[in-house]
């Protein structure tokens, strides 16, 4: 492809209760129905249904993960939009445990 590849992916993970993630990341891995799907900036457009699994994303060598229970994602060369069903993410559970 002659087009310049974007440097980042804008990742948004939204569940009915709240906005879980809104960050610029370098790499995303989605749990699709047929297995994990690695996504880098410049990926071709894709609509995908998600199954059960861990959504992982990498941002400046820091890897974070998020459990996902079903949902849908829209992948464009410069952004990834994820709609998921689950209520709370790992971070919330952790902070609740600490608090």
């Amino acid at each position: 492809m002659s087009q310049d590849l974007p440097a980042f992916l804008k990742l948004k993970v939204i569940c009915p209760k709240e906005l879980l993630v809104d960050e610029e990341v370098q790499e995303v891995s989605l749990p699709s129905l047929e297995g994990y799907l690695g996504i880098l900036p410049g990926h071709r457009p894709l609509f995908v249904a998600l199954g059960l699994g861990l959504l992982t994303y990498k941002r400046s060598n820091k890897q974070s993960e998020l459990p996902v229970q079903g949902g849908y994602a829209e992948v464009l060369p410069d952004r990834v939009l994820v709609f998921t069903e689950q209520g709370k993410d790992e971070k919330n559970k952790l902070s609740e445990g600490q608090g």
Partner: peptide
């Protein structure tokens, strides 16, 4: 008429996905 000029892929397929998305939209 796709803005990026590339037709997107669908997984799994347009029909199964829309078949779930549209009722989901109404519910939502």
């Amino acid at each position: 008429a796709v803005p990026t000029g590339l037709l997107p892929d669908w997984e799994p397929g347009i029909f199964p996905l829309l078949g779930v998305l549209l009722p989901k939209y109404i519910e939502m």
